[in-house]
């Protein structure tokens, strides 16, 4: 177990380094600089700004500076917002994105596995077809359609929910409800399909027949015996799912004008705010790696056949 963790960490370090390097050089290859404003500033000031951020040095030296700061845990100052550091910006945006993503994945896992389990128990009956039809709809309607449509219906026509932004910077239930549902819908669909397939396979295995044969009521068989094996594919999906959620949350933050880090990333990339882009990439890469690791550990915990040695 400990060896497994160590080995994974050992692989993760070059991965993160590769991601940092790629992102750094790609971003610098973009034409333009962070100091190209609508109203041009004098060349002398531009040069001084560039010198302040070491942008006048060769790019490999800049990379060296960046790594040096990074090793001290310093993500550097924002090049666009004078009095903010990248850490400040992430600290502002991350709670919004994290709340959004966590609520969405929780909702998706609960509803998705319930629907999937239900469909599996009624395989090839009308209930199964109804759920799978719904799931297919969920996969086929992208969030940038459901988002605006729901905003139109519940926000503008019915006036029940706010359609954009936060409540004076505060994260509230009503402001997050529509974004969370938008983000969760495709995941609900995917999870219910996964759950149905694995539940059907589990219900056919010998030990389930044994459980029925010894006279257990069906709810006990399903909950105590089948569920544990059936959630395994779901667990291994959760790692990649978080990545998908991050992607989705960029769109959702854009639709509902939420000040999360996905939005800051897109803004940063468009405005050449190099350090902000790097900061967000590093944060997300680390998150994906950590969550994948957690999913693997959870897998081993639930599946007695898996051993980490």
């Amino acid at each position: 177990m400990f060896g497994f963790l160590l080995r994974r960490l050992f692989v993760a370090i070059p991965t993160v380094f590769l991601i940092i390097t790629l992102a750094f050089f790609l971003m610098r290859a973009a034409p333009g600089s962070p100091f190209d404003l609508e109203r041009p500033i004098p060349e002398a000031i531009k040069a001084r700004l560039a010198a302040k951020f070491h942008l006048d040095k060769p790019i490999t030296i800049q990379f060296g500076y960046y790594l040096k700061d990074l090793s001290k845990g310093d993500l550097g100052p924002s090049m666009k917002y004078k009095d903010k550091t990248v850490s400040n910006i992430i600290a502002e945006g991350f709670p919004v994105s994290a709340t959004l993503g966590l609520s969405a994945i929780t909702l998706a896992v609960i509803i998705g596995s319930l629907l999937g389990g239900f469909a599996a128990l009624r395989q090839n009956q009308s209930g199964d077809y109804a759920v799978m039809g719904l799931a297919m709809t969920g996969i086929s309607i992208p969030p940038f359609v459901t988002g605006p449509v729901m905003a139109l219906i519940f926000g503008l026509y019915l006036g029940w929910l706010p359609t954009a932004g936060l409540d004076r910077g505060q994260i509230t239930f009503t402001h997050l409800l529509l974004p969370v549902i938008t983000l969760a819908l495709p995941q609900i669909a995917i999870i219910s399909r996964l759950m149905r397939a694995s539940m059907i396979e589990t219900l056919r295995s010998n030990y389930i027949r044994t459980a029925y044969a010894k006279g257990l009521p069906s709810y006990a068989v399903v909950i105590r015996h089948a569920l544990r094996a059936a959630v395994l594919p779901l667990i291994s999906y959760l790692g990649p799912a978080t990545a998908a959620l991050l992607t989705g949350s960029i769109v959702v933050e854009q639709i509902f004008a939420l000040p999360g880090i996905g939005r800051q990333f897109v803004m940063g990339a468009l405005q050449r705010d190099y350090t902000v882009v790097m900061g967000v990439v590093i944060l997300y890469a680390t998150l994906i790696i950590v969550l994948n690791l957690v999913a693997d550990l959870l897998y081993g915990f639930l599946d007695p056949k898996v051993r980490y040695d």
């Binding site: 991965t15 991601i19 973009a30 990545a243 992607t247 990333f265 990439v281 997300y284 890469a285 994906i288």
Partner: peptide, 18 residues
């Protein structure tokens, strides 16, 4: 495996911006 762990959409966005 290494490429899998990358937040790819970010790279696509950066590529498109570049």
């Amino acid at each position: 495996d290494t490429l899998y762990a990358m937040p790819f959409i970010f790279f696509v966005i950066i590529l498109m911006v570049v």
